[in-house]
Design a protein around this nucleic acid. Structure first.
Lengths: 115, 115
DNA sequence: TAAATACTTAAGTCAATGCTACAGTATCAA
DNA sequence: TTGATACTGTAGCATTGACTTAAGTATTTA
């Protein structure tokens, strides 16, 4: 699947496709948290959470720093924005095309209210 | 991975994580297309494209209809919007929290310009 | 200093993915 | 009716992915 050079968007969408990882992102959108805080509500071992965290960090969606024995994680909002933007752009093209159709229909058979 | 009941967002993010499938979405954002039109620019067999198409349809990102021997595919903009919204909401929470921090800092040590 | 805490790392397992090849099945066109 | 089009469907294969268990390593706390 990702045996070629994976691009940023591949990694981000892939990371967001897992409900556990999305739960972690949801928690982090409320503010920084430690690894065990992220793990607490999830039905899996700490080990698994650490692995999910790695996926999120490699996707650039989360960054973390260790102080003492606690690793604190924070959301990387810029990557979220990049993902949002990709979708917004596709929607924009779609709507443009839709507008063109409307314009065409309007000139072909103008509605009363548009005359 | 998806051995439990997969939710809509799981499927959508998963579908969007593949560059080939994103290319198909990009093409469809410009307007409807047949399966072979979608396949033409992609470095894989038609068979593979059909399989990707199935993933996109199951995620609700694309719908298609067959007329004669041609299957025409169109983008399902509403699912795109749902994905966009999930991200926008996380960003909103994040920014709220950021605003609160700013407000706190402002009352703790007001800057000249804010007095 | 001994015990608890908070991770960290490495196997190992098993299902899910992304392909290709190959063998169809309906249209449509001459 | 013969051939080309435009898919469709399935088997097989190599990778990836999402865990768990088990065995650490630093830091704090008592």
């Amino acid at each position: 699947m990702l045996q070629y050079q994976a691009e940023p968007l591949d990694l981000a969408f892939q990371a967001l496709s897992d409900p556990g990882r999305r739960a972690m992102i949801e928690r982090l959108s409320l503010g920084p948290a430690s690894v065990s805080e992220l793990a607490k509500p999830l039905p899996m071992t700490l080990s698994a959470v650490v692995q999910h965290l790695k996926v999120l960090e490699e996707a650039g969606l989360v960054k973390s720093e260790k102080v003492g024995r606690v690793r604190t994680c924070t959301l990387e909002i810029r990557t979220m924005t990049r993902v949002e933007r990709w979708i917004a752009e596709r929607k924009r093209f779609w709507e443009q095309q839709y507008d063109q159709l409307e314009a065409y229909l309007a000139q072909a058979a103008p509605k009363e209210e548009d005359k």
